[in-house]
Design a protein around this nucleic acid. Sequence first.
DNA 1: CTAACTTTGTGAAGTATTTCACAAGCCACC
DNA 2: GGTGGCTTGTGAAATACTTCACAAAGTTAG
Lengths: 200, 200
Amino acid sequence: MYLRYLEELDTQGQKTASSDELAHLCGTTPAQVRKDLSFFGSFGKRGLGYPVHELTAHLRQILGLEREWKVVIVGAGKIGAALANYRGFRQRGFKIVGVYDNDPTKIGKPWGEAIVHDMADLAQDIQREEVPIAVLAIPSDDAQDVVDRLVGAGIRAILNFAPAQITVPPHVSLKSVNMAMELEGLSFALTNSLPSQGAA
Amino acid sequence: MYLRYLEELDTQGQKTASSDELAHLCGTTPAQVRKDLSFFGSFGKRGLGYPVHELTAHLRQILGLEREWKVVIVGAGKIGAALANYRGFRQRGFKIVGVYDNDPTKIGKPWGEAIVHDMADLAQDIQREEVPIAVLAIPSDDAQDVVDRLVGAGIRAILNFAPAQITVPPHVSLKSVNMAMELEGLSFALTNSLPSQGAA
DNA sequence: CTAACTTTGTGAAGTATTTCACAAGCCACC
DNA sequence: GGTGGCTTGTGAAATACTTCACAAAGTTAG
């Protein structure tokens, strides 16, 4: 989140930013900002604040965004399409090296700049190209099956959009986005008149 | 998350579930499960566990899922399409009452069961129909503008898929899903050999 | 160069959350 | 109906996180 705002400030040509300013932008407190950043190092100048451009570089480094990450998208449905078209990925160093589906009417068809591959080739392709990250955009029923194949092929991280509960071994990172669950969180907030979650 | 697993167990016909079992499923601890649930009431039976069916009903009540929530989708692009097609929303009591876009080539065209409406009508429709929730699936540049209009029209919660930082007044609940940021989280986990986030 | 002002970095204090551990309750079996 | 084996609910302890508050360090102005 800090990186997002710092990039914005950098684009606007701002040279430094105080913890107070960052806190205000991010909806947190100055002390929180300082503690968070101090965990990774001592980036600021007393009396002046944090050097915007330098700090963005540091954070990118910390997040591992200096390198390019190969990513496969599994599932050429609507969500897969939304993801494949999303320019933000490329911009941030995530290179989509393949889109996979098991629908014969989709395989071989063009898909943005890429072509839809047969899911049967998924495992071997990942293994050969050493792709570390997969984005899962397939129906729930197949999710765990596909995950197991991905894990077997050596995937190291999975971003899951299927509304299914899936499990992975400890050495694989898993992050699930469940849109229905997000809406349910809002339902809870509305039902209980909770205050806003603020920006995120 | 508990609700998800409980529903699964319920479908499978399981009558009761212990905190130990739920903890194992959810990747947490039995004590955590008991503390979490005890916050809302005393649902379990000692020596037996929690009554699966009853507890799902309780959780649905707590989350405000007994009623139907009207939802508008703003943006008839790929993400909007993925959301509109997603059966999970309807199943869980979220009724999509309208899809809006400002692209003249899309307005009036059918969109699943609905028709794409002109974004110019958005505010008045929300006000008239008293729609409490909006899902934002539009380009970042327009996001804050549209949010302001939604807020002005009396919206009470927003689920934002635009990769933009938006702000809302305190009485409005906001939840943002930023796919690039999710991937960056995985990048950090990979770069720093963090253990899995587990299921979610 | 000095003085007044700003802002970081960080121990210490204060909160919040998670885990422990165990009494109390419930079931099942004899 | 009593006994043994589970499992909850919950204070207390342990851990984690956030906020406070201030010395140290840098900046600006004169």
